[in-house]
Write a protein that binds this DNA or RNA. Structure first.
Lengths: 236, 236
DNA sequence: AAGTGGTCTAGACCACGCG
DNA sequence: GCGTGGTCTAGACCACTTG
């Protein structure tokens, strides 16, 4: 890409991940970086602010910018990231099983969830995620057909997001997430490796495009003993 | 405060919350705001970027800035916010019961959780939160005595954060959060209104000061049927 | 006093949406 | 073509930390 501050941002991330900043983990000062990258101070500061927001560094006025301990603060699963992107980063062995793929009219349940009145059509995709040999997550995705005209078995088994962003050209922008704990349904028990517990962790995702239109609703249903949600937050 | 972009940020938030931007919910353009507030474009953009990050607005290049539906995206509980601040915003009836308050040496459990070796002392605070007449949350807080020299019953029953930031002058900066689901402990059953379930949702918080030192570890233990975690995320 | 990050300004050019 | 937001620059002054 042609955006300087994003290039610098990514470059610094990879330097942090490869431990290029020495033992005390102090970044060069902004003035040093201005010379190093040959850009203005504002461009450096944009990159540093992004790093700070995302938990990579901490800036302290009068002292400098410091790397936050990578093992403690990296890879929060709290963002808007696809399952494939997550597993690639975390380097775990996992498989995806496509259970259902069909085009259906919006029913009452979806009208409630997606807060709609009209008679749109959606793609319903049900997939099971297996990690370390155990079926742990049941993903139920619903995509508006008006944004996603076609969807195939191959795409669903690989990465739907990659397809939507690169092939279809959708601009996925933001999501509202919601985590609750519920009684497991018959569908959960049918698809997942339940033992003696009948509780399920439900992560609902309402996902919006850049034009603020809802295009996807997702329920990720997790086995409770394998569920872990991490995030990073800053005090306002 | 003397910071222009924060003043503008807060002013726009309150305008959004009071529905001052009309039906289509389009904000004035950046150029209009420059005149309205008599500041430079960069100052306006800082305020707007903050609003966008926190889910208040969506900017669309070539079109403008638009308010995100307040009912859908407001008040995410995912940040670094104290219980008192949350309940004040949400306008619910709740009570806090202080169960334990003592100064203890760091034990093995805390050494593991807080990743420490030395023999520091901590304040241990156990509080029960009652909402709508039901005891729903068990909060176990541990504060380093080196940062928090004194702590009283009155402070614990009001707002510890208010005391720490305003009286002690601590600069609370960021936190790592972790949500898991566990078997309920005897302590959970002793303090909370359990019925037939024996599962508890555990929200762990590791809270750091501006100088990157850990000063607090907190476990918020929630009844699963009352637990709901909401957050807002943007695609990178 | 020197160096660091924090805020603010004024101006330039670019990319996008719309009529 | 115009107005919108996105990026980049150069310079100023302030607040804070450290020696």
């Amino acid at each position: 890409m042609n955006v300087k501050y994003l290039n610098i941002y990514n470059e610094i991330i990879s330097k942090i991940e490869n431990d290029k900043f020495g033992t005390n983990a102090k970044l060069p000062s902004e003035n040093q970086m201005i010379e190093e990258y040959n850009v203005s101070r504002d461009t450096i500061r944009k990159a540093l602010n992004l790093l700070e927001q995302n938990g990579y560094i901490q800036k302290i006025q009068g002292k400098g910018s410091f790397v936050l301990d990578i093992n403690k603060f990296n890879f929060p699963v709290s963002g808007l990231t696809s399952f494939k992107e997550l597993t690639q980063k975390m380097n775990v062995e996992c498989r995806t099983f496509l259970k259902e793929l069909e085009k259906i009219p919006v029913d009452h349940f979806l009208k409630m969830q997606m807060d709609l009145l009209d008679d749109d059509e959606v793609w319903k995709v049900i997939r099971v995620r297996e990690i370390g040999g155990k079926k742990i997550i049941l993903d139920k995705d619903y995509f508006f057909t008006k944004y996603v005209p076609s969807l195939t078995k191959e795409i669903c088994e690989d990465s739907i997001y990659q397809y939507l962003e690169n092939q279809v050209g959708l601009k996925i922008s933001f999501a509202k997430k919601e985590i609750t704990v519920q009684q497991a349904s018959d569908e959960d028990k049918k698809y997942l490796d339940f033992e003696n517990c009948n509780i399920i962790v439900v992560v609902k995702n309402y996902i919006y495009l850049e034009d603020m239109n809802l295009f996807q609703y997702t329920e990720s249903r997790h086995m409770p003993d394998k569920f872990k949600f991490e995030s990073f937050a800053r005090r306002k």
